[in-house]
Amino acid sequence: MTRFIEEHRQTYGVGSICRVLSIAPSAYYATVARQKNPCVRSQKDKELCDDIRRRGNLTEGLYIGLDYEKVCFVEKKFP
Rank of each mutant, 00 (worst) to 15 (best):
V20H: 07
S26I: 05
A27T: 14
R34E: 12
K44S: 02
L48N: 08
Q43P: 00
L66T: 09
S42H: 08
A24Y: 03
V40W: 04
L21I: 06
C49V: 15
S26W: 08
E69M: 01
I23D: 01
C72L: 15
T11M: 04
L66N: 10
T31F: 06
S42C: 02
E69Y: 12
C72K: 15
G61V: 13
F4S: 00
F78L: 10
I5A: 03
S26Q: 09
L62D: 13
Q35M: 14
S16Y: 10
I64H: 14
E69H: 08
I52A: 07
P79T: 05
N37G: 00
I23Q: 04
K76A: 05
I64V: 13
R55C: 11
T11R: 12
T31R: 10
K36T: 02
S22L: 08
Y29T: 14
K46W: 02
R19P: 00
G13Q: 10
G56V: 05
E47P: 02
C72D: 14
I5P: 02
C49S: 12
K76V: 15
S16E: 09
I5C: 02
K70Y: 00
V14C: 07
A30N: 02
C18G: 09
C18H: 09
R19F: 07
G13Y: 08
F73A: 11
N57K: 14
C39P: 09
G61H: 08
L66Y: 13
I52W: 11
K70W: 04
S26D: 05
A30P: 03
C18Y: 10
I52R: 04
V20K: 01
A24H: 07
Y68G: 10
G15C: 05
D45S: 05
Y68M: 07
F4E: 02
T59C: 15
K77E: 13
R19D: 00
N37E: 07
E69K: 10
A30E: 12
K70C: 00
V32D: 01
V32M: 08
E47N: 06
Q35G: 13
H8S: 01
A24F: 06
P25K: 08
T59A: 14
L21G: 02
R19M: 00
R54G: 00
G65S: 12
P38K: 09
E75W: 04
V14N: 09
D50W: 15
T31S: 06
Y29H: 11
G56Q: 15
C18L: 03
A24D: 03
S22K: 11
R55P: 07
L66I: 07
R55H: 15
R9T: 13
D67E: 04
G65I: 13
K70D: 00
R3K: 14
L21W: 08
A33L: 04
E47W: 09
L48Q: 12
D51T: 03
D51L: 08
K76C: 07
L21Q: 04
K46F: 09
P38D: 08
Y68D: 11
L48T: 01
C49P: 06
D67K: 11
V14W: 06
A33I: 06
C72Q: 15
R34H: 10
